[in-house]
Design a protein around this nucleic acid. Structure first.
Length: 458
RNA sequence: GGCCUCGUGGCGGAGUGGCGACGCAGCGGACUGCAAAUCCGCGAACCCCGGUUCAAUUCCGGGCGAGGCCUCCA
């Protein structure tokens, strides 16, 4: 199966060919752990989780190395630590834990590697020293800066010329950097802030250097794929490229991928605007993790996606149909199967999840039409194998429909049993009364020749 | 101001130089004691104006509209 991916560097869809098919490397910029992640922050981990699953399917589980970092040192974290009066590590570890829990609820697989910035400072210092040696960086009292003028192809990712940057540069007169577009590799220590010893003076790392250093340390450049949100193209990824390529003399990553934004009322979801909702809140409202995941995957990763309850409702209804098929086949033996080719082909075409979902829908229809045991076993296996590749249909189908009832389930079972008895006695007035009573509790009853089942009303 | 996306049916959302996915909702039919679920079927769209072409929603130009980036940002 040939995978094609849109490369931000060339703005084209290209055939993906890893340097080494036995060691496929991918790095995605992870969270800055100062504060809970919102649903927009969850889009990259979910999107690249699908890519991770596809790569593992294609090259083998052990062949894919996926690193997603934790930025656990920066201004916001320091501020949060001061405001809450707790050590920095307490802030970062708590946020990390919550992040892991939220991602788990969205069926995001744990990446192969999860490096922390604070545990890789020596690697950052090494890169900075190399840049100073090469004349690509300079030391001034406020820190060490990368000299953009020293980098001839600076701007190649974002498509900005150095002239554009000068024209649009914001003025912030506090720095002693030589050019407004130069950026900090290292910030000289300040009282009350964490700092590390370094040959060019004690201090703490700038934002961009951690990814450059951790990629080198954990994976080794060039890596095959580097991903993140579209807002990271400039300056973050542009600067990573500048640093790494100036230091090492070869490309940092061969394919750069960027996901589009989640919006609320067409406006970018962002903490600074305040129009955010978190996975935690959605789960507390009763939405299931897979519903959230489905909603995130219902649009192509590069397209903007407007987040609202209707999107979630449609996602849940769509999943209900799929889980209905799985439930109907719950007694069919689970055959082993590869995900169907058309489904994989959709994903291989630049992660076209809407097309993949359309294939999934076709599998549901054929599962619902299957009659013979062998067909049913095959249909069930195909459906579940396809679902697994996008991280959907991972729950027990009965649990899917009944999760919201908890301890009430036993009572509902009893009412349904009463209704079955009434129907057997052809007491339809009573059976209809019971159905209405169940409906009021949000329960839908389904009768069949073999008895009655129930589930949450759609 | 510079750079970059995008504009598809009631809603979500793929895709394509000619036969206009898929899902949600709606309508009709089958099934059902009646329903629900399921299946079968139906209606319904390519922002506007030019151009290229036998043929454009798809390519090119212009316009209008929406959004993003320009060193906090997924």
């Amino acid at each position: 199966m040939k995978i094609q991916l849109t490369n931000t560097l060339t703005r084209r869809k290209e055939a993906f060919a890893p340097t080494d098919t036995k060691r496929v490397t991918m790095y995605v910029c992870g969270p800055t752990v100062y504060n809970v992640a919102h649903i927009g922050n969850a889009r990259p981990p979910v999107v690249f989780d699908v890519l991770f699953r596809l790569l593992r399917h294609t090259y083998g589980e052990k062949a894919v190395l996926y690193a997603r970092n934790y930025t656990d040192i920066d201004d916001k974290i320091i501020n949060a630590s001061i405001e809450r009066g707790v050590p920095i590590a307490d802030v970062t570890r708590a946020v990390e834990e919550q992040y892991e829990a939220d991602m788990g609820a969205l069926n995001v697989l744990t990446p192969t590697l999860r490096p922390r910035a604070t545990e890789n400072v020596p690697a950052m210092i090494a890169v900075i020293e190399k840049l100073i040696e090469k004349g690509a960086a300079y030391v001034v009292p406020s820190g060490v800066y990368f000299s953009v003028a020293a980098d001839e192809d600076y701007g190649k990712l974002s498509g900005r010329s150095q002239d554009d940057l000068k024209a649009g540069a914001r003025v912030d007169g506090e720095d002693d950097k030589r050019s407004s577009s130069d950026f900090a590799l290292w910030k000289t220590t300040k009282p009350g802030e964490p700092s590390w010893e370094a040959p060019f003076g004690a201090g703490r790392p700038g934002w961009h250097i951690e990814c450059s250093a951790m990629i080198e340390e954990e994976l080794g450049s060039p890596i095959d794929i580097h991903g993140g949100g579209i807002d990271l193209i400039f300056p973050h990824h542009e600067n990573e490229i500048a640093q790494s390529e100036s230091a090492h003399g070869h490309p940092l990553a061969r394919v750069w991928m960027h996901n589009g934004f989640l919006t609320m009322d067409k406006e970018k979801m962002s903490k600074s605007i305040g129009n955010i909702i978190t996975p935690r809140e959605l789960l507390e409202q009763g939405w299931q993790g897979e519903t959230i995941r489905y909603a995130l995957l219902s649009a192509h990763y590069k397209a903007p996606l407007d987040w609202n309850d209707e999107l979630l409702e449609q996602a849940q209804k769509s999943l209900d149909r799929m889980y209905g098929a799985v439930l109907r086949l719950k007694d069919a033996p689970a055959a082993e199967a590869e995900p169907p080719a058309a489904f994989v082909a959709a994903l291989a075409d630049d992660l076209n999840t809407p097309a993949a979902i359309a294939e999934l829908s076709a599998l549901v229809t054929s599962a619902n039409n299957s009659k013979k045991p062998a067909e049913q076993a095959q249909a069930k296996a195909d459906l579940l194998a396809a679902g697994a590749l996008v991280g959907l249909l991972q729950s027990d189908p009965e649990h899917w429909f009944r999760a919201s009832f908890g301890e009430q389930a036993a009572e509902i079972d009893a009412l349904v049993a009463e209704r079955v008895a009434a129907r057997a006695a052809k007491n339809y007035a009573e059976s209809d009364r019971l159905r209405d009573a169940l409906a009021e509790r949000g329960v839908e009853v389904m009768d069949s020749a073999s008895g009655s089942t129930w589930r949450r009303k759609g």
